[in-house]
C-alpha cells in the first residue's frame, strides 16, 4: 500500500529524513516509533503530501505521491490531482484539529459533501454511523470546544473515516491527551485495525505497538534504525540506539 524508497527531506539545510525505506502492506498496521525529531511525523506527512519529499520514491497504492512519471520525466501533479489523492488518505493529528466553527456532525459531513460530492442526507447518515462507532452519537450537536480531548480525537477519527480512506495516518494521536483519556482513543484504533484498515501510526504507546502493530519501525536521526515484528523488536532490540530509547520510554 505504501512504499518508501530512499525518501529524503530537509528543512532549510537540516536533513530530517535521510533515505528512508519502508513498506506498508494492505490491511496491516505499521507503527513508527523513535525519539522526537527523528523524522517520524515528517515521513507521515510526506505520505499524504502535506510535505514534499526532496528525493527518493514514495508510492501509495502503486502511484507516486505528488508526481506522475511520463516519458522518463517526473511531472508534478496539479492541486486538483493531489487533493483527489489526499482525500483517499485519512489523517489524524496530535492536536485533533477539528474545525472549531462546525459542530461534531458538521465536522464529519463537510468533507463528504464538499469533497466527495455526497448528498447532505447520505453524508449525515454515514456520519451518524461513524459517530456511533466511536461512541459519540450523543454529542453530534456540540462544538469541538465543548468536548474532552479524547472525545475530540475520536471525532477526528470519524471525520477521517468519513472519506472512506484506503489508508489511515495517525500522527501521535494520544500525545496531547490526559493519561486517563488515552485508552478510549486506542480502543477505537484497535477496533479499526481489527476491521482490516491499513494504518500507519506514529506513537509513543509501546503497548499499543506491541499488541496491534504487524510491523514496527524504529526511526532515529532520519533513518530506519530497526524494524520487524513488534514483540520481537521490543523484546530483543539489536541496536544500541533502540535499547537506550526503550530504556527511557518503557
Amino acid at each position: 500500500m505504501v512504499q518508501a524508497i530512499g525518501v529524503c527531506k530537509s528543512y532549510g539545510g537540516v536533513e530530517v529524513l535521510k533515505g528512508v525505506n519502508l513498506t506498508v502492506n494492505r490491511g496491516e498496521v505499521t507503527c513508527l516509533i523513535g525519539p522526537s525529531g527523528s523524522g517520524k511525523s515528517t515521513l507521515l506527512r510526506c505520505v499524504n503530501h502535506l510535505e514534499k519529499h526532496d528525493a527518493g520514491e514514495l508510492l501509495v497504492d502503486g502511484n507516486l505521491v505528488g508526481y506522475e512519471e511520463r516519458d522518463g520525466k517526473l511531472y508534478e501533479r496539479n492541486d486538483k490531482q493531489i487533493c483527489r489523492e489526499r482525500a483517499q488518505i485519512g489523517m489524524v493529528f496530535q492536536r485533533f484539529n477539528l474545525f472549531a466553527h462546525l459542530t461534531v456532525l458538521e465536522n464529519v459531513t463537510v468533507g463528504q459533501v464538499k469533497v466527495r460530492g455526497v448528498s447532505a442526507d447520505q453524508a449525515t447518515t454515514r456520519a451518524r454511523e461513524l459517530l456511533e462507532r466511536v461512541g459519540l452519537v450523543a454529542k453530534e450537536k456540540n462544538y469541538p470546544s465543548q468536548l474532552s480531548g479524547g472525545q475530540q480525537q475520536r471525532v477526528a477519527i470519524a471525520r477521517a473515516l468519513a472519506m472512506d480512506p484506503k489508508l489511515m495516518l495517525f500522527d501521535e494521536p494520544t500525545s496531547a491527551l490526559d493519561p486517563e483519556l488515552v485508552g478510549e482513543v486506542l480502543d477505537v484504533m484497535k477496533d479499526l485495525a481489527q476491521s482490516g484498515m491499513t494504518m500507519m501510526v506514529v506513537t509513543h504507546e509501546m503497548n499499543f505497538a506491541r499488541e496491534v502493530a504487524d510491523t514496527l519501525y524504529f526511526l532515529d536521526h532520519g533513518v530506519i534504525e530497526e524494524s520487524g515484528e513488534p514483540r520481537e523488536v521490543l523484546a530483543h532490540p539489536s541496536s544500541e540506539r533502540l535499547r537506550s530509547f526503550l530504556s527511557k520510554v518503557l
Binding site: L50, D79, R86, N97, V115, A156, R159, A160
Partner: peptide, 15 residues
C-alpha cells in the same frame, strides 16, 4: 490555527 488548514487539506479540500 495552521492545524485547521492542515486538517482541511488532509481531507482533500482544495485551497
Amino acid at each position: 490555527d495552521e492545524g485547521q488548514i492542515e486538517a482541511a487539506t488532509s481531507i482533500g479540500m482544495t485551497r
